[in-house]
Design a protein around this nucleic acid. Structure first.
Lengths: 344, 344
DNA sequence: CTGAAAGCGCTTACAG
DNA sequence: CTGAAAGCGCTTACAG
């Protein structure tokens, strides 16, 4: 069943059929009705290969997701798909390893699938710096701030990582914590780790609290298993920690398990705070205090920006999305003898 | 950059270039080398629209995933993608709502994207019964058993749901539990719920233990929030339950939270057992005893079957994948006065 | 408002 | 082993 068949069946030429199919204006109401009826009755769908070949117009929007098990990205992706579906855009999703070079992958993808735009869910700025110049279609990076890179084809939307981490540190200090351990972040998320760590350091410095990242920070990948091991390692090295800050909720979840196994009660013996606010954060025991990233805003603004960029080639936009500190049950005020003395 | 440019640059005709690109045999080594060199130097990738249009050969394999937040499916999908990538197959992934009609969707998808094969991650047999006859390419249904449907284009690989649930019931009975509550399953997963519930009923009947599904079973969707509410509801209705069986780990996780909130200790006051063995099962507190579905086998066998079916049109295959009961910390033996009396 | 025709970039018999 | 040519199913100026 091709457009030719429809033409024959409807008594019109292929040109007219094509015009009807593409909602072009210059068609008589009569022709439109007749042709649509035939199309309907035959259940005809135009061949997208032929269409795209002719139109030279690339078809879909590709989404590159870094990490299959990342619940935060799953949330965002869900929204992205919904919004894109509303706009009748075709979406192509590819999952990459947490450590993969997403930009290299995008360069390949661009040649093979010729998407008209790309959305990166997570990314390493180093990769962008190195290879993004090879990309020729509008892109949006979600979850990382790319303003500094100044690529004319790259917009970005990210949570205020530094601010959020300052808020966490302030919050913990306010609760009386002075010896804080940090879990997570690694080479594959260079920038995120750095921004978040900086936020912590800034706030702590402001409170004149020392923080030696060499010993108080244990990097790890974003998974429960890694969070578990990292927590074990960190606590062995520094048993006097009173509060843990995990740079991702999955890390926090793994760490909480480690704390249980060490016989530490949360939050009586040690407090813990996460980052992301994935679904589990509300159902684990105790409920996890965490930083909520606004996944809906990230997804929607990202898609809108890409769509706008696609129709009118305006300048790239970079936006910081506000975070929210969700106070739940995993943090408790702390006051030991020493700090009481100091206060007095 | 088209094949014509490559032809010009290499001094050969487009036919020869095409043959080289497609690894056809009848090309001189000289031509192959020369052309490949030019292709390489130009970073040329053939236009897939043109290629597919001409070849009339459908391009990709589509995977339809029911439920975005389903961790079990995320695991399986990850393997599917890996295997398909090894076979250099192009994958198209679409996420559907847990309650969506995946077969209707597939019928549309088939017209629009013309995939050469489909993999369903989860599905409702009712939908298949109703609309699968409209599907014209080989398909594999994962996680549900479709042998009874006898569609010549549909293979299926599923865990032995009934057997697994019998095993769970046996296990709980053996531990002394007599009053068991069941959580999960709904209309959108008609068959799975039925099979699993049957397994439970069979085993319980064998042990001569009454089970009134009207009051001992609370259906719910596969999410923590729903598991939480379902557990609350069930326990209000039947406070004397000594063991809960959740038909999905996410449901179990939500239910565990409900138990905590009700002041019930796990497993001292009440035991709980899950289904799937997602990552969280090993990190929650207490660690969740659960049925492990063999996601790797499901994914690999499914893909292999599809690939085989694509190259040689053999008969569909239906296979039951073995399960495994992972005993962890959430179940404890139970013995109340009554049951001790009875035994004596 | 409509039809005939060119052409998008490829693959593949068909000759040679 | 290689080239010239037809044709995959569509869209879009170009005439009318």
């Amino acid at each position: 069943m091709t457009i030719k068949d429809i033409a024959k069946l409807s008594g019109y030429g292929v040109g007219t059929v094509s015009r009807v199919l593409n909602n072009h204006p210059d068609v008589s109401e009569r022709a439109r009705k007749k042709i649509l009826a035939v199309v309907e009755s035959q259940g005809f769908e135009p061949n997208s290969n032929a269409r795209h070949l002719k139109m030279q117009a690339p078809s879909s929007i590709a989404v590159l997701v870094k990490g299959t098990q990342n619940m935060l990205f799953a949330d965002i992706l869900e929204r992205i798909q919904a919004v894109l579906r509303d706009h009748e855009e075709d979406v192509y999703v590819a999952y990459l390893d947490e450590d993969a070079d997403e930009v290299q992958y995008a360069v390949q993808l661009q040649k093979i699938r010729r998407p008209k735009g790309l959305i990166f869910l997570g990314g390493d700025l180093e990769h962008f710096r190195r290879s993004f110049y090879q990309i020729t279609v509008p892109c949006v990076l979600l979850t990382n701030q790319a303003a500094d890179l100044k690529f004319s084809l790259l917009s970005s939307f990210a949570t205020d990582d530094t601010g959020a981490c300052e808020a966490v540190a302030d919050f913990l200090v306010e609760k009386g914590h002075r010896t804080i351990g940090v879990l997570g972040g690694n080479l594959s998320a260079e920038q995120i780790s750095t921004l978040r760590l900086n936020g912590i350091k800034n706030a702590l410095a402001r409170h004149q609290i020392a923080f030696d990242s060499e010993i108080q920070h244990e990097p790890c990948r974003f998974s429960m298993a890694c969070g578990y091991q990292a927590a074990m390692k960190l606590l062995r090295r520094m048993p006097n920690i009173t509060a843990l800050f995990a740079l991702g909720d999955v890390i926090a979840l793994g760490a909480m398990r480690a704390l249980w196994d060490l016989g530490l009660r949360i939050p009586q013996d040690i407090s813990i705070i996460g980052y992301d606010d994935i679904a589990s954060a509300q159902f684990c025991y105790p409920r996890l205090t965490t930083i909520r990233q606004d996944t809906a805003a990230l997804a929607e603004k990202g898609v809108q920006a890409l769509l706008r960029r696609l129709s009118s080639s305006e300048a790239p936009v970079h936006e910081i999305i506000p975070f929210q500190l969700c106070e739940r049950e995993s943090v408790q005020p702390y006051a030991n003898a020493e700090s009481i003395v100091k206060k007095g």
